[in-house]
Each structure stands twice: as C-alpha cells, then as structure tokens.
Amino acid sequence: MLGIIDRYILKRYLATFFVMLLMFIPIGIIVDVAEKVNKMLANKVPIDKILKYYLDFTIYFANMLFPIFLFLSVIWFTSKLANNTEIVAILSSGISFTRFLRPYLVGATIVCVFVSIMGFYLVPNASKGYNDFRYTYLKNNAETRESLDIYRQISADEFIYASNFIYGTKTGYNFSYEKFNDNQLEYKISANRIKFNPEDTTYTLYGYNKRTIGEMNDILEREDAKTMRFNFDVDDLVPVIYAAETMSLKELNDFIDKEKIRGSSNINTYEVVKYRKYSIPISAFILTIIAVSVSSIKRRGGMGINLAIGIALAFTYIFFDKIFGTLAEKSSVSSLVAVWLPNVVFGILAIYLLRNAKR
C-alpha cells in the first residue's frame, strides 16, 4: 500500500510529466506550422488533413521525445523537494533512500505501460499518417522514390530481380523472373523494362524474353511487349522506407519474417524499430533512477545546476540511441545489441549514481 508520502510523490511525478508534455508539444506544433505553412498553402492542403496531421504529429513526437520529457520532469520536481528540504525531512524520519524511491518506480511503471500501449497500438497509425502527409504534401518526392538492385523471393520457388524501380512512374529496368520446380529452373522471364498498370494490376514487359527449360532443347519466346500478372505488387519492389514504423508488433514480426525470406537488405532497419518498442518503455526506469539520484541532493547552484546536468544527460542518451540505431541500420552490427546498448550503459550509470546518492 502507498502511504501519504508515496501518494504525494507519485502525484507530483505524473502531474509534472504530463504538464511537461502539454507545455512542449504545442511549442513543437507552432514551430512545425511556421516551417511548413508555405508548402501547405502552395499545395492547397485541406484543413481536415492538416488537423489529422497534427494529431498524428502529437502522438509521434510525444513517443519519440518522452525520455527527455520524463527526465526533465523528474529532475524538476525532485529538485524542488530538495530545495525545500522535504527530502531531508523524509529521510530523517527513518525512511531509507531505497524506500524513498518506491513511488518513483511506481510512477515509472505507469509511464512504461502507457508508453508501451502507445508504441504497440497508437504510434504505428500516427506514424503512417504523419509520414504519408509529409511525402504527399510536403516533400514532393514520392514520384522519385527509387530502389536499386532489387532481389526478392516472392514464394518458395519464385524469384525476381530488377536493377532499379522508380515508384512514381511504376517502371523498372533489367527485370527478370525465375520459376523453380524441385530446385530446378523451370523457366526464366526477362525484360529490358517493366511497367505496372494500376488499372488492372498487371505488368507490361518491354523487350520480353522467356526461356523454358526442356529436357533436350529450351523453348524461347520473344515479344516487343507483353502484359502479364505476377504474384507481387509495387510495394514489394519499392518498400516504403517508414513501413516498419506503421505496423503493430504482430504485423512487424510477420513483415520481418517475410522480408528475411525475400532477402531484403533492410532487415536491420526493421529490427531496430521492433526492439525500440521494448527498449524505450524500459528506459523510463533507468532515467527515473538517474534523475532522482542527480537531483535529490541540494546543491549550491540550486535547481539550475540539476536541470543543466539533466539536460546534458538526457540529450546524451538520445544521442547514443540515435547513433547506435543508425549504426545497426547501416552496418552488420547486431540490431538487438545496438538498440539495447544505451540502456545498458545508462543502467550502469544509474546504479553508480544511486549508490552515491544513498551515501
């Protein structure tokens, strides 16, 4: 059961965190509007699309920046407790520092659950709306989205390749399709150019060639252009770069399994998104312990010193998280190790600071 002091600290913990969110998110929206209003007006974006975009923007950035908001809010109100000598009074009453931490950990648990629910269910939809709006109305580069050296296994015995595919024109070059039967090549289709026809979901192959493997002789077919159906769609050729962010956990797991079969080169990028769904909520405990350990001591410089230390540590955490996430996406470094390493490093720092604070 939580006592009076526990409820007092827990109430301050949650209230300060949510007030911090409510203070900074409108500032972020104002900055974003000032930056993008000209493009919105030029593209005549409907008002309902803009309102939906900023709802998605709020969820997307609240999830992304929650470690900073949580860290600063805990430092803020804990520093106020220390400056008012309330912490000294609590500890002087016989309560240990570990016991003093209990309402903070309860608050971190509530925040962890809240952020996990957001990450699993709300953030994927918000991310899709946010990124779709940007690519449709702001970036003006959806027409030039391109994939190079595409190789996909689209089923157990079907493989496709294209040297490049441009999303805007729905056109690929140096295309080939291979069909196997019992690990033996049955036939191969190649074309200088392939174009997707969205009206009937067919593909037109220009410079069409088909080689069917025979026991004695191969059968060759050639046509200037041939329209066909295949067991893949345009998104298989040019996957959206933010596809993983828009999926629930189950969808993401299924998507990663499918992309592994297809030989996708972006597996690490997708796995980074997956592991962050777990690592970001857990960081609530680590950052809370660090914040309490740093700010529970009354310093000569007052709250300003604690906030300065807190801001430096918070941005260092974000920096490490981004650096190792990018490293996993662009290299052979394990995505699991890269995503969890900042939590491990800051977890060790949290233990060290907590031991010092107890003294």
Rank of each mutant, 00 (worst) to 15 (best):
R222T: 12
A225V: 03
K226M: 10
T227E: 09
M228Q: 05
M228W: 03
R229M: 02
R229S: 03
F230L: 01
F232H: 05
D233G: 02
D233L: 06
V234N: 03
D236E: 10
L237Q: 10
V238Q: 08
V238H: 05
V238R: 05
V240K: 15
I241Y: 10
Y242G: 07
Y242I: 07
Y242S: 12
Y242V: 06
A244H: 08
A244W: 01
A244L: 12
E245Y: 05
T246K: 06
M247Q: 15
L249C: 11
L249T: 15
K250M: 09
L252P: 14
N253T: 14
D254H: 01
F255M: 12
F255N: 15
I256L: 15
I256C: 15
K258C: 02
E259F: 00
K260R: 15
I261L: 14
R262I: 00
G263Q: 07
G263E: 05
S264W: 14
S264A: 15
S265G: 07
S265Y: 10
S265P: 07
I267M: 10
I267W: 10
I267S: 08
I267Y: 07
T269Q: 13
Y270D: 15
E271D: 03
V272W: 00
V272N: 03
V273W: 01
Y275V: 06
R276H: 13
K277Q: 12
Y278E: 00
S279I: 01
S279E: 06
S279V: 02
I280Q: 05
I280M: 09
P281D: 05
I282N: 01
I282G: 01
S283K: 00
A284N: 12
A284Y: 11
F285I: 06
F285E: 04
I289W: 06
I289T: 08
I290D: 04
I290S: 04
I290K: 01
A291L: 13
A291E: 11
A291M: 12
A291C: 08
V292R: 08
V294P: 03
S295T: 06
S295N: 04
S295Q: 08
S296I: 12
S296Q: 05
S296H: 04
I297N: 10
I297D: 06
K298A: 13
K298L: 12
R299G: 08
R299M: 14
R300S: 13
R300Y: 05
G301N: 09
M303A: 12
M303C: 09
G304L: 14
G304Q: 12
G304P: 13
I305Y: 08
I305G: 03
L307N: 01
L307W: 00
L307H: 01
L307P: 04
A308F: 11
A308N: 04
G310L: 10
A312I: 13
A312P: 02
L313S: 02
A314V: 07
